[in-house]
Design a protein around this nucleic acid. Structure first.
Length: 114
DNA sequence: CGTGTGACTCAGT
DNA sequence: GACTGAGCCACAC
């Protein structure tokens, strides 16, 4: 019951967290994608800032930079990489094989699942 | 209410 | 592939 004291639950911040939480294991999304899914395409930068304070409960390691690059992770990129690898994400050098792991909300996954 | 900031992105060199 | 410059946005101070 959101009383007046509750967060507005309408802020971009809350939306981003909700989207990131929906990212399934073994899948990755770029900051720009998250921003777009949150309703603010182009706010990739803002997403990064929000992620920095998302706290636990949010698989921030599944959010990467564009082109499959790891991007940042509070100075722990290697940890981000490890977490993704632990989920079965394939890497191509320093980049994630987005061609096989880029998450698609409402995608045609059954078509490519084969 | 103006300014600064950064876990971003794109295009050019 | 690496570096630079410019654009963009939400949030903290």
């Amino acid at each position: 019951m959101r009383q007046s004291g509750d967060v507005d639950a309408d802020t971009f911040r809350t939306r981003v967290l909700a989207v990131v939480r929906r990212i399934p294991p073994g899948r990755v999304v770029s900051y720009g994608e998250v921003a777009a899914l949150a309703g603010r395409p182009g706010a990739a930068r803002a997403v990064g800032n929000i992620m920095s304070g998302c706290g636990p409960g949010v698989p921030a390691h599944r959010v990467i930079a564009a082109g499959g690059r790891l991007g940042g992770y509070g100075g722990h990129e290697h940890l981000k990489r490890s977490l993704l690898m632990a989920e079965g994400v394939a890497f191509r050098g320093r980049r994630v094989d987005i061609g096989a792991h880029q998450w698609r909300a409402r995608s045609t996954r059954k078509l490519v699942d084969g």
